[in-house]
């Protein structure tokens, strides 16, 4: 299976509202690696994701995806915190918004892969919160992304739905071989999904800890996940001191 792209992010300086958010920040991610960016709310995690998606360009420095500037790199599969579905389009048309050329069968297949059945003609508001996130995930997968960017994809969902979605996302990333960056403030998300956890903190933002999680995400037991979660939490507490 082909791996996703290598990522290299260098931010010489990024200011926001007069505050220096990032200064001399460097992060590299190997192809096929799943990296969780963890940090407190408001630290600037989503900003990093927006830079990698090619949406945020107002900074000194460069974001390279396989050596190419982020805005010119192939379309990433971006999963937004709020699902960001287009409410005026049916579920099927929400998928076609990013790939107008796909057949009905491919749309049905993408929906089925995320556990959605018989929703093609429904409107997004008719879906539950968990189903909306699944639809956002199906949309991201439809572009056959080599790079998956997930911005707090499980926030505001109940625990059962979060568990289901964490397992689904893990499977889908493993199947696709994509490089993935997950942004979250919850250590449990990282403990479930990531090969590596990067904890960021401070102003300007710095990498406070960089942890490798040995076991492959798809093969982790509950005990291992809980142990990883503890390890990440401890690192987070120490980075805040």
């Amino acid at each position: 299976m082909a791996h996703g792209p290598d990522l290299s992010l260098s931010i010489a300086r990024l200011t926001f509202g007069g505050t220096v958010l990032y200064k001399d920040f460097h992060l590299t991610i190997a192809g096929g690696e799943v990296v969780a960016l963890i940090g407190p709310s408001g630290v600037g995690k989503t900003t990093l994701l927006r830079i990698l998606a090619g949406v945020e360009t107002g900074f000194d420095g460069q974001a390279l995806v396989d050596g190419r500037p982020a805005p010119l790199a192939p379309v990433p599969g971006l999963v937004f915190q709020d699902a960001r579905l287009l409410p005026w389009l049916t579920c099927a048309d929400n998928l076609r918004a990013v790939r107008p050329d796909v057949s009905d069968a491919v749309v049905a297949q993408a929906l089925a892969a995320t556990g959605l059945v018989d929703v093609q003609d429904k409107w997004p508001r008719q879906l539950s919160g968990g189903m909306q996130r699944r639809l956002g995930l199906a949309r991201a997968l439809l572009v056959n992304p080599r790079l998956m960017l997930l911005d707090e994809p499980f926030v505001s969902l109940d625990r059962v739905v979060v568990r289901e979605l964490q397992a689904l996302v893990t499977d889908l990333i493993v199947q696709s071989g994509a490089t993935a960056v997950l942004v979250s403030h919850d250590p449990q998300d990282a403990a479930c999904l990531a090969h590596r956890v990067v904890i960021i903190a401070g102003r300007p933002v710095q990498i406070a800890a960089d942890l490798a999680l040995d076991a492959l995400p798809a093969q982790r037991s509950r005990t291992q996940i809980i142990a990883y979660e503890d390890r990440i939490e401890t690192a987070m507490v120490e980075s805040a001191l």
Binding site: G54, V55, V75, P76, L78, F80, L86, A97, V98, V143
Partner: peptide
């Protein structure tokens, strides 16, 4: 603006 960001991210 959130929808504009979606459009830019997916290169519409």
């Amino acid at each position: 603006p959130a929808f504009d960001e979606f459009a830019r991210a997916y290169r519409l």
